[in-house]
Amino acid sequence: MFQKDDVGAFNEIVFRYKDKAVNFLFRYTGSRDDAEDLAQDTFIKVYRSKHLYKEIAKFSTWFYTIALNTAKTNLKKKSRMSTISISDFDPENEKDFDLTDNAITPDESANASIENYYIQQAINSLDEDFKRIIILRDIEDLDYEEIVEITGLPMGTVKSRINRGREKLKKLLTEIYPYKESN
């Protein structure tokens, strides 16, 4: 139905997957605005490339693949833009200032707990290869097979990266949020 220009079917897809897409992309990018924009772009791509979808795979797998590729493309575009360090303008003070993530802060989100905030900070600091697999597996709760299809990596690589990613995340959380471990 969706492939036969049924607007109702597309609206149903948007209704079902909009929260998942926004959540996945927020965890991947760390920015709510970027997540919303990328989710909309993902749905546009889904709508325009609906004829490419084949029913041999799960629709969720196909949808996450598109969302991940959209996020990667956006990240590449951002990385091309030269970021200027504030320390360049203050040669006397050699201390680097990291720009704060204004996407979500404890003050802005009343419901977001401090733990969630620091966990997100830890996820953002993960490497790209570990980050996407950890998000797909532990946040979106996808199967290994689905992650293999989405990432195109072998099963062993996916599993090893999941374990290594979790270890890195744990280490980061102990550094950023040490008192939690002690509790």
Partner: peptide, 8 residues
């Protein structure tokens, strides 16, 4: 898994 889900 228990992280807060972000909604659109």
């Amino acid at each position: 898994l228990n992280l807060q889900r972000i909604k659109a």
